[in-house]
Simulated assay, not measured.
Amino acid sequence: MPLQVPPAPAPALRSVLAALGSPTAVREARTPSLRAAQGPTSPELPLPVHVLDRIAPSGTSPTRLAGWRFLIRSGERAVAAADTMLTPDGWTFSHFFEGPYIASTERALRHAEAMPMPYQPRLLSVPELYMLTLWLHGDCTADGAGGHLAPSDILVPLAPAPPGIAAHRPHRAAELLKVLTHRMAPAPLLGSPA
């Protein structure tokens, strides 16, 4: 079943296209694969990047939109990604980057395409655990910029995943949130030694 990729805000896309067209922005980017790309590059698969700061006891956890991420394709593969952010003046280009999450995102999206149910793909960052997941939201008509993480949504941890959490294994959000709740809980205060 095809994924229903939400449309990115037009200014976010324009800002990435402008950055890709700027020799200075590309040359100064810390992305050797982008600088070495042969032929044209294009931003594809815009995914809203949401941040999970806390897990609600109700099972639905609020997220906040942090930006939009575009995979930068050169030929048959993504060579980098571009992040955008919302400023008081609107959506603007933030930075280019590369690393293991690029290939991991592509792999997770390919597997999600083969799932029997349609989903809206998003990215969910859990900064406290240095974790990024592909968030497959069950409501394909939802605004990609908003919403809550529903218990029936699917989360696919991207590699590298935190120790003890298998990368690329799909989890129901409710199931993975239980594990994350335990990991995000503050450590108990130890009493003073006697």
Rank of each mutant, 00 (worst) to 15 (best):
S22H: 02
P23R: 11
P23A: 04
T24S: 14
A25D: 15
A29I: 04
A29V: 05
P32W: 07
P32N: 11
S33V: 04
R35E: 04
G39W: 01
G39H: 04
P40A: 15
T41F: 00
E44W: 06
P46W: 07
L47R: 12
H50K: 11
L52K: 12
D53R: 14
G59F: 08
S61H: 11
T63C: 06
T63K: 12
L65D: 09
W68A: 08
F70G: 08
L71K: 01
G75F: 12
E76P: 02
R77I: 07
V79H: 04
V79R: 07
V79W: 02
A80I: 01
A80W: 05
A80F: 02
A81R: 09
A82E: 11
A82R: 10
M85A: 14
L86T: 09
T87S: 15
T87N: 04
D89Y: 06
T92S: 13
T92W: 00
F96P: 08
F96C: 03
F97T: 08
F97W: 15
F97P: 00
F97Q: 13
E98S: 15
G99H: 07
P100T: 13
Y101A: 08
I102A: 11
A103I: 00
S104E: 06
T105N: 09
R107V: 02
A112T: 10
E113D: 14
E113W: 06
P116V: 08
M117C: 04
Y119P: 03
L123R: 13
L123I: 07
L124C: 06
L124M: 14
P127F: 08
P127I: 08
P127H: 10
E128K: 11
E128F: 07
L129S: 08
Y130W: 02
M131H: 06
M131R: 00
M131I: 01
T133S: 15
L134V: 09
L136W: 10
H137I: 03
T141C: 00
A142N: 06
D143A: 10
D143M: 02
D143G: 07
G144A: 09
G146R: 15
G147M: 06
L149K: 03
A150C: 02
A150W: 12
P151S: 10
P151N: 11
S152Y: 05
D153E: 09
L155Y: 12
A159G: 02
A161P: 13
P162H: 12
P162F: 05
P162M: 08
